[in-house]
Design a protein around this nucleic acid. Sequence first.
DNA 1: CGCACGATGCTCT
DNA 2: GAGCATCGTGCGC
Length: 211
Amino acid sequence: MQPLTLDFYQKYDTLTLAQRLLGCTLVHQSQDGTTAGIIVETEAYLTDDPACHAYRRKTKRNAAMFGPAGTVYVYQIYGMHYCVNIVSGDEGVGEAVLIRALEPTEGIELMEERRGYGMSSAEGRMSKEKPIRHSALSLRHVCNGPAKLVKAMGISIEEHNGTSLLAGNLKIYPSVLEEFEMMTTTRIGITQGADLPYRFYVTGNRFVSRK
DNA sequence: CGCACGATGCTCT
DNA sequence: GAGCATCGTGCGC
């Protein structure tokens, strides 16, 4: 199957793209191995939206948001975590879609290692996340948050910020979900623009960060 | 299960 | 100097 093309990233406005990315698969082919997961939760950030990093002006941090659709925007948050976005809209306009959760499909052991957990085993999984090397991480908790999936997928600001999804080792493939219900809510963890209904997720999917 | 809180460092004001 | 598009722990139920 072929990855999503420039046309796909360009033809939708940001709110629509955020919805169309649900069900698509994010794939990272790294030196350590390939990891992949189905996008099950997204949020849109528009240029006239006070929660958007590009709301005020172009800066060193948000520069990637002003690139062409299909550009990757990675930023650091709370001094210790990173989140990944898919840039959308016209070049020169700062808009993007935050990837908030993935349903892991490939390279699950590698994901768990990157998250700081030991080898995965069907029996060994614990219901709670424990910072002990020998315990495994419940699959449900591997990619059910924006910073968790960045770490699990091996995405980094140094390697990926400002790069294109059309070339390189990070790509998105078309939706594999036949039919699904989508839920729309307000976004999580923001104070500005908190009432805007710009969050979308696959209804009933257990890998979503929160209902 | 749910809620409260502290960690931690960069960016922009 | 304030404010973060978060996460994991610890505690109570």
